[in-house]
Computed example of a mutant assay.
Amino acid sequence: MSLSITAAEKAILADLSIPPRPQVLLTITQETKKAEPNVAVIAEAIASDVGISGAVLQVVNSAAFRRLNEIKSIHQAVMTLGINRVFPIVKAVALKSAMPASKVLDAFWLEANLLAGCAAATAEELGYESAKDNAYMLGLFHQAGVPALLQAFPEYEKQLAEANNMGWAALAEYERREYGTSHATVAALIAQQWSLPKVMVEAIYYQHDSAGLFQGEELSASSLLMLAILKIARIVAYRKLGVSSEEEAWQDNYDGLLNFLNYEDQQLEDVLNAVAEAQSPA
């Protein structure tokens, strides 16, 4: 299933400031396309950006990744984890650095970090260890449209402040009425522009319109898995934050999730508890 963008929406999106990929990502992408990528070049490219490299080390050593031994350098991270695991994390942290700094977004980025950690833990608890890095990136990327909308529409700050009270799906509806697009659509386009995998772009695009998708055949099983990871991560994160507005969206998807995962209620409850526990300080 491809993204459905209206002509009016295309005109609006053309005026939004979607951040380009930073040079470090372009360098890594070019190197990984070679028959024999040079690991040293990739590590040096990441390390050349102090902000991104520091954030990458913080992530790979965080509770979400449950490492026994601390990784102390980018070169060690690339050699230990491999570029296929490090690159999604680089993309995730590069996104934040590419966005305009704003005190209005301080709480937003704290929530995004929690969501990313929950997504990584969810992938592990569901038995998809190899998807943890992409799940982390999905958790951080899926609301990337928010900073872009805030930059384009300063009055959006008032609605953003109420997002957790009104619910993010309700906020998306408000955005469509007022601006002709939504943070989910903008985030999906950013993900597409940053060359994220199609399954992640689809999960981001349908993050608030997923009711019924788990029972249908519109999306591939891989896209639905990423969407399932995102749904679980969101409900765990917002429950930890004491936000009740996401409960309705969770219930709308609950039965579909159970069927897709082939889980019983208690199995899913165990996953929720384990993901929540993974975010608690040791």
Rank of each mutant, 00 (worst) to 15 (best):
K72G: 11
A92I: 05
A135H: 01
T6I: 04
A135G: 05
R66W: 10
Y156R: 05
L81N: 01
G117C: 04
I46R: 01
A188R: 03
E36G: 06
K34D: 04
P20E: 10
A221I: 12
A228I: 06
M166S: 08
A274R: 11
A249L: 15
E70M: 12
P19K: 06
L171I: 09
Y238Q: 11
A40I: 14
I83A: 04
A43M: 07
A144L: 05
Q251E: 12
Q151Y: 05
A120C: 09
D252E: 13
A43P: 02
P100Y: 08
L16T: 05
L3M: 13
I235L: 10
L114T: 08
V50H: 11
H208G: 04
A64D: 00
L138I: 13
F260E: 00
I71A: 05
E277K: 14
E246K: 08
I74T: 09
Q251M: 13
L126E: 00
A163S: 14
A40G: 05
E264R: 14
A47T: 04
R85G: 00
Y254G: 01
M99C: 15
V271A: 02
L268A: 02
R177V: 15
L3S: 04
Q23I: 14
I42K: 03
G139Q: 00
L213Y: 04
P20D: 11
L110E: 12
L219D: 01
E129R: 12
Y206L: 07
Y254S: 01
A131P: 00
A249Y: 01
Q76S: 08
V271S: 00
W109V: 08
L261H: 03
S245Y: 03
I89F: 03
V60H: 00
K34A: 12
D270Q: 12
A221D: 11
L219V: 06
N164T: 07
Q215E: 14
I229R: 02
A92C: 07
S222G: 02
L16K: 02
M166I: 15
R85W: 02
I5E: 03
S280N: 11
E218A: 14
G216C: 02
